[in-house]
Amino acid sequence: MGIVKASDVVYEYIRRDEEGNVEGITTAVDKVSFEIAPGEFVAILGHNGSGKSTLAKHINAILNPTEGTVWVDGMDTGDEDRLWDIRQTAGMVFQNPDNQIIGQVVEEDVGFGPENIGIPTKQIWERVEESLRAVGMYEYRKHSPNRLSGGQKQRVSIAGVLAMHPKCIVLDEPTAMLDPSGRREVIRAVRGLNQVEGVTVILITHYMEEIIHADRVFVMDQGKIAMEGTPREIFSQVERLKELRLDVPQVTLLAYELKKRGVSLPDGILTPQELADALTGQKRGQS
């Protein structure tokens, strides 16, 4: 079995008006099934309100499915007795960097998780050091989080999860509140985690350029998985992505535009180099 497996997961919540009367039921996640292999890098895309964050919170047992089951490393997330094992196996990084840092010194924050799971003092220090090094924040270990940039704070948050030695990390829009350089920093750290440390990564985002390096992409819409495939497969469907309220990288958009005007190009071009290769081939072919 994969590291994370979901089978027919439904999550409903009841809307109430001001007096507390039930107004209706919203289905945020609607019969979703998937399986993620250890070491995979999966991106979940979707516009705001598509259900992607709700789905993500199931993996960390913050939410429990109304119907269906989620397993993390073989453990049913509905199993109360395994709750802390599940949270230790699947770590979670949230959107707002300010609201998830508990410590007042970087290293103390990273040590918070290991302290909670009862790791002996000496090992906490080892874990803190290796985690901070893994995200490139070791020189900042004595700093106050308030003085860091958004990207740096998010890297500290990632280190805080990493120090618990999870097998899987779920990142819920970790870059939504950052500027472009902060976004690049965080994505670089996440890729390092996946490639160097071999941690399974589930990245939730609405920025297209962040998913190019994923092994697999799920696109969510109205609580369902609307598209699934490699980034290249996903990006080759420009029209469908636009329907789902998503962006397409400019290079893909340009290739799409050129194709519409009759230039023959392969599907799902992802980088400027690829486009240049394809176009210079054209030119040579013509002359």
Partner: peptide, 18 residues
């Protein structure tokens, strides 16, 4: 939410970094 996600459950069984 973030504290719970990082397995915080009160002082019981907690170790200290410092």
């Amino acid at each position: 939410l973030a504290m719970e996600a990082r397995c915080y459950r009160g002082g019981e069984g907690r170790t200290k970094m410092k």
